[in-house]
Amino acid sequence: MFEARLIQGGLLKKLLESVKELVTDANFDCSESGIALQAMDNSHVALVSLLLRSEGFDPYRCDRGFSLGVNLNSLNKILKCAGNDDIITLRADDNSADSLSLSFENPNNDRIGEYELKLMDIDQEHLSIPETDYDATIIMPSAEFQRICRDLTVVSESVTIDVSKDTIKFTAEGELGSGNIKLKSTSSIDKPEESVNIELGQDVSLQFSLKYLMNFTKGTPLSEQVILCLSEKMPLLVEYKMDIGYIRYYLAPKIGD
């Protein structure tokens, strides 16, 4: 028996919006500790990994671990039927369940919507992601990161990210010309969510596809801050933390031959 009731149902709606562009089908792996999902995009260039901890639900019940195979587009369509302030409850009987029940209660508890989503068998490759000490970790406003990706898309399909002592620089070069945006590390005691924090072990310079980064920024509504972790010749980690867990995106770099 699996049951998870999320008071802030709107969070689940935002989460689905932030993964559906990248991944079509995925397993929600449910266990005592919470709900996890890991899936790569079709081209094996990007990966999304999300975790919703059991403590974030009220109540949360999961007798034993199992996977719910979901078409994310279909789930997203059903979640659009929930109000932003609704309480969302997910239910499935056991591992052989062929559907996921969803109920949407409004805040006054006088309107309850009930839906069933057919589940599917998904044979998914699971990657083991090593613990990494990154060369550079940047915490910055998520809206700023979104704007930079959007702006540089005008110029090129790729962006080079250079991190040095107190600066992160995003550079794009294309047929029409070039552009770059430099952000200096700042510390705003009054508004820490607006500051740019750079932790640097050694300088890093890496190139990434902007198309994927634009997809990752669908996570912007989930958190005011985004965390970028970079190491030379390693995939980039883009993380949005939530009270209840996180969503992490990994992107393989472009490397010169």
Binding site: S43, H44, H126, L127, I255
Partner: peptide, 14 residues
């Protein structure tokens, strides 16, 4: 010229 790498060349299957 740089080419897009696959994640599979960094992360192993578990």
């Amino acid at each position: 010229v740089s080419s897009q790498k696959s994640l599979l060349s960094f992360f192993g299957k578990s």
